[in-house]
Each structure stands twice: as structure tokens, then as C-alpha cells.
């Protein structure tokens, strides 16, 4: 699992683009070999913080595509500031990454 993130500031607005490796299983797919349902496994919450403030809190269902992509913009970020992105899935797994604004 990994998170790839870019944070770029232009004219006082920071654009975040993030790509998260995650299977995002809906729970309705069947394993082609065994015929058994693959259990649901998806990210439920993604939080992005800038200077300790949550600039984005995303709640997701299983309908977000595999290896999720997320982009959004916020004002107030400066070049060199750190932004932190973290996620939690329905099995309690989590990951986070930090990136400085360029």
C-alpha cells in the first residue's frame, strides 16, 4: 500500500493530488476460482491536514474506484508547508503520507 501525493501552490491556492493504492473491494465481486464472494474492503475516511487543520475530510463508500484518486484545492498554504494525508479502511487498516508544498 502506498500513497503518492503532490501539493503545489499557485497564487495562494494549494492543489492537492493524491493517488492511494487500495483494492476498494465492494463485497459483491466473486472470486472466479472459488466462486466465493470477496469480502468488502474499502477506504472509509481520508483526512488531509495542513498546519494541523483538516482541510479535507472525505467519507467514502465502496463505489470509489480501485486505487483511488483525489484532488482538491485550499487557500492559505505556503511553499514549504507540510500537508499530511491519512486514510482508514473498513478493516481498520490505515496509512499516511506527508509532502511539502512546492
Amino acid at each position: 500500500m502506498s500513497i503518492k501525493m503532490r501539493a503545489a501552490a499557485t497564487d495562494g491556492v494549494t492543489t492537492i493530488k493524491a493517488l492511494i493504492s487500495h483494492p476498494m473491494e465492494t463485497g459483491t465481486r466473486k472470486d472466479k476460482k472459488t466462486g466465493e464472494k470477496i469480502p468488502a474492503h474499502f477506504i472509509q475516511e481520508v483526512v488531509c491536514e495542513h498546519n494541523g487543520n483538516a482541510v479535507m475530510t472525505a467519507h467514502w463508500g465502496a463505489a470509489i474506484s480501485k486505487n483511488p484518486y483525489l484532488s482538491f484545492r485550499f487557500s492559505g498554504g505556503n511553499v514549504g508547508d507540510t500537508v499530511k494525508l491519512s486514510w482508514v479502511d473498513n478493516k481498520g487498516n490505515s496509512d499516511s503520507a506527508e509532502e511539502s508544498i512546492k
Partner: peptide
């Protein structure tokens, strides 16, 4: 998507 105070009305995903 819950937006922070300075977050713009913009989200992109798949």
C-alpha cells in the same frame, strides 16, 4: 467530502 474553512468548492475523484 467535508470541506475545511479555506477549502475551495472543488473535488475530483473516480
Amino acid at each position: 467530502f467535508v470541506l475545511g474553512a479555506g477549502t475551495e468548492g472543488y473535488v475530483s475523484t473516480r
